[in-house]
Amino acid sequence: MSLYLFLTLAILTIISALAVVFSKNPMYSVLWLIVCFFTIAGHYVLLNAQFLAIVHLIVYAGAIMVLFLFVVMLLNLNADTEPHKSNLSKIASAIAAGLFFVVLIASMRATELGEFNLPNKTNIGFVEEVGKKLFTDFLLPFEISSVLFLSAMIGSVLLAKKEKK
């Protein structure tokens, strides 16, 4: 049962991720990205990490993508305002993507697929477990990342204030 669920979710994830790239309209790209986040949250639930799944939805689908949508809505996106790209940049990007593809193939060939057994009944993704881990084993990184967030917040407020004057 969980194999079929996984396959369905995985295919949906890939389709929606491709749709993000191939959509002509940036609005649709953003919406496909939200769909993609939902399917990834589904993967977390399959791994028994409900807390992570919900937080993923709240933070990414609920907050960050709203801001993305906000910006895209305010932009005036027409065919005539679109910047014209020169042929040189097109060729350069094609070569870069090709090279990356080669590297990807080479590294995939060298990788050996290990066995992975999903532990059936773990509580590792539950709130209590995550909280205990964060406040014991990973206390320092946790606190440091909170300082990082604080500085980012102060920085953005500062930037917003500067523009006014």
Binding site: Q50, F51, I54, V55, I58, A61
Partner: peptide, 21 residues
Amino acid sequence: LNVGLLYLFAVISIGGYGIMI
């Protein structure tokens, strides 16, 4: 759900999309 209240927040934050879209 053992994350019931967080589920509530997730759904509320997605509700805004209906209005925005």
